[in-house]
Design a binder for these strands. Structure first.
Length: 156
DNA sequence: CCCTGATTCGC
DNA sequence: GCGAATCAGG
């Protein structure tokens, strides 16, 4: 165990290539090796091991001028996902459920997060204040959009 | 809104 | 050469 910082040694590079060829994502490789995702990608690019996309003929790349094409296109893939895959989210979580209300008491600014299972006698909704345009409150919206608790422990 | 990949730039 | 910042696509 050397006292210096073994940034990229042959072992790391081999592991990097092995995982890369194994089909692992850069994030997985980075997590396994113990470096940042950019570090892995940077090393890969430096070794000319980039997968697919190349720098052959990249379109306009203006950093100071940016791209003047401001296309106001939105993408609500996750919205469609939760709407189509909403089976029985009976998770109350740390959200306050003291403001729950029935379907008839729901309003435009009320969180429509279902409490308990649909069809139950005590079936009701969250009822907390929801932002304009969003069917759920902040807490429930977060759960609906990202129920996957990913560890945010990288300096990306 | 979040994630992954690739390039650019500063150290 | 390394890695964060940034850009670009999904």
């Amino acid at each position: 165990m050397p006292v210096l910082s073994p940034t990229w040694t042959d072992e790391r590079i081999e592991l990097l290539k092995q995982h890369f060829e194994a089909g692992l994502s850069c994030r997985e490789i980075a997590a396994d090796i113990g470096v940042s995702r950019n570090a892995v990608i940077g090393k890969l690019s430096r070794l000319n091991l980039t997968r697919g996309r190349t720098i052959d003929d990249r379109k306009v790349q203006d950093r100071p001028a940016r791209t003047p094409r401001t296309v106001p296109r939105l993408q609500y893939e996750m919205l469609a996902t939760i709407y189509g895959d909403a089976d029985a989210p009976v998770a109350t979580g740390p959200i306050d459920d003291a403001n729950r209300c029935s379907l008839l008491e729901l309003s435009e600014n009320r969180c429509r997060w279902p409490i308990s299972s649909p069809g139950a006698e005590d079936f009701c909704f969250c009822g907390n204040s929801a932002p304009d345009g969003q069917p759920y409150c902040t807490g429930h919206s977060r759960l609906a959009y990202r129920p996957n608790g990913r560890a945010r422990v990288m300096r990306g």
